[in-house]
Design a binder for these strands. Sequence first.
DNA 1: CTCTTACACTAGCGCTTGCTTGGTTACTCA
DNA 2: TGAGTAACCAAGCAAGCGCTAGTGTAAGAG
Lengths: 193, 193
Amino acid sequence: MNASPRRKELTRLAAQLFVQEGFDKTTVRMLAQAMGIKSGSLFHHFKDKQEILAAVIEEGTHNALAIARRTLESSPPDPEARLRAMARAHLETLFTDRNAHVVALFEWRRLDDDAKAHLSHLRDAYEALWVDVIDEALDAGLIHGDRFLVSRFVLGALNWTVRWYDPAGPRTPDDLADELVAMIMPLKRQGGL
Amino acid sequence: MNASPRRKELTRLAAQLFVQEGFDKTTVRMLAQAMGIKSGSLFHHFKDKQEILAAVIEEGTHNALAIARRTLESSPPDPEARLRAMARAHLETLFTDRNAHVVALFEWRRLDDDAKAHLSHLRDAYEALWVDVIDEALDAGLIHGDRFLVSRFVLGALNWTVRWYDPAGPRTPDDLADELVAMIMPLKRQGGL
DNA sequence: CTCTTACACTAGCGCTTGCTTGGTTACTCA
DNA sequence: TGAGTAACCAAGCAAGCGCTAGTGTAAGAG
């Protein structure tokens, strides 16, 4: 809804605190302090605490969707390249916008029903892009299996990386993406690295 | 620690509430009511709320580890069969003991440092079993890639199923396990179902 | 018949929570 | 210059929180 620069900055700070402490344990007083204001002033920017959570998740999901669309537009028609590009884009967003995405993945249940209904459309649109790319790979015979199962296994493997991946380590997100694609498409990998 | 039958039953009820409401939003009064006692009486069985969470997670992880060990013991030495058996066992525990495992996966951060240190040993032991099985499959040339990456991708894909799998649907957990194994090992699947 | 143990109760303390209210400040634009 | 507005603050309310203290009761052990 409202997208003032101030509100965007506050949303970013909130995302960080939600990741550090969890949504429920983050008090409006903590949020206010991190933002350099008093707790009462928070409610000038957000109707209630729920709306802050919704703003964080909406921001993250919206970005991910935009990046995925751009990635697919500027991607060649080759199914393997598109699959790899999607995996790379997914991990790239996941780790540049990490806080927002961790919140989206692990605090989703804290949303009230209205917010959930609204945001699940965004999420479904994102997953639909994945199912399309998986479909292309299936049609091309690169991978095998049920389109939904494969999509969900792949997304699960990718999303779970936020639980163990250390950006300071030797591996880049692109390395992870390539390894995953190689794992489900070993025929292409036989002679490679 | 203490494992009276009464306490086990209370732990089971707590797991259910923690899944429904989340740990932080589950009050000791809600827990007590679900158990048919008053909130004060709760603290006869558990030192504090934290200990209930730890009990839930310990119970679930302990079971998973026991089942995985039993599975591997009664499994033939064939790497493919062992991999499939582990995947099936993982999903089976995940969905028979679903509440405890959902709590373990998504409320881990709420544990205090001592409990985390204690329970991460259990979890690491479980993951080590997986790395072994993955290693065997790598050595046999069934799959390719980095042992840790493959283990984590596979565990991620499996754990993520709790987010979307519907036990009332047409597919059994064994179906899921077989599909996943087929996905990362397509050579074996070419002529099959 | 007493002592112990397990389990439960009532009552409430001290604190924190999300949020409201009524008023103040600083900036923008006619 | 003065009206309008966005951003903030001080103060605090009502509700709910985890947890404690002190007591009661029933069953089994000696």
